[in-house]
């Protein structure tokens, strides 16, 4: 073979490639592959959903909010601009804009409506995310990967429910009691309710549902015809927020 500079470069290139392949071969050669499993107690469903029974909701009760925000290390900055919230209370006219009218029953006007991520069947936030930092799981939960998020905030512009929050600043100093079992977030990433995937994975109900003493929050599998949530949906008139947008929200409200 002619020993030219060109050939030398070619051969060195191939050799370098070989070095790159080494770890791959190494990995393939391992005969004892460790196994990966979902948790043994994990609760599974084809479609998770929630019903909020506003009739059972008690004014000034914050049990679900506190439980959620403590479990997930949600900070409290004390200002509305930077505010982060996963589940919170809105009045009827804000939860269902356009539905309210002047002669509303006083009870409806006063009632707290718990709002959270709707875990849409057709989530706009997922559609717009440029790095797949948010996606819909096979059980319908709209999940968030804080390791992936680049902080472009397309999801915030896309969500028609205002359910997404952004870490405008480092949240750590503003978390009163940190739950060491769950990570905090870092500045510059978006976050929201995840229907407590980390609790479902070990067989626990979402923190808000568990915390509600009045049974106002019901969580369950829509795909099981006999599940309590299906029974509630069968026997009650329910509303969803902004159904006209075609997002198919999966949080239902009994008014």
């Amino acid at each position: 073979m002619e020993r030219s500079r060109r050939n030398f470069l070619k051969i060195s290139g191939i050799c370098l490639l070989g070095l790159g392949v080494k770890p791959v071969v190494h990995a393939l050669a391992k005969n004892e592959q460790p196994q990966i499993l979902p948790g043994p107690d994990a609760m599974t469903a084809k479609r998770w959903a929630m019903v909020v029974d506003t009739k059972k909701c008690v004014d000034d009760c914050r049990d679900c909010i506190d439980a959620c925000h403590q479990t997930h290390n949600v900070p409290d900055f004390g200002n509305p601009k930077d505010e982060i919230k996963w589940i919170w209370h809105e009045y009827y006219g804000h939860a269902f804009p356009g539905q309210e009218h002047e002669y509303e029953a006083e009870e409806i006007e006063r009632k707290p409506f718990m709002v959270l991520c709707n875990h849409c069947d057709n989530p706009p936030c997922v559609r717009v995310c440029p790095v797949q930092a948010t996606w819909k799981r096979s059980d319908g939960i709209v999940m968030m990967d804080y390791h992936r998020c680049i902080g472009c905030r397309c999801c915030m512009a896309a969500c028609p429910y205002g359910s997404r929050s952004f870490n405008w600043r480092d949240p750590r100093p503003y978390i009163k009691e940190t739950n060491p079992e769950y990570p905090t977030r870092t500045k510059g990433v978006a976050e929201k309710c995840t229907f407590c995937v980390e609790r479902l994975a070990v067989g626990l109900m979402p923190a808000c549902v568990e915390a509600c003493k009045h049974g106002a929050l019901v969580f369950g599998a829509l795909d099981e015809p006999d599940s309590p949530i299906r029974e509630i949906l069968r026997s009650n008139f329910t509303l969803r927020r902004k159904p006209e947008l075609g997002t198919r929200p999966q949080v239902y409200y009994i008014v």
Partner: peptide
């Protein structure tokens, strides 16, 4: 986070 797998054997 992404695949919902929790246990490593």
């Amino acid at each position: 986070v992404r695949d919902g797998m929790r246990v490593y054997v």
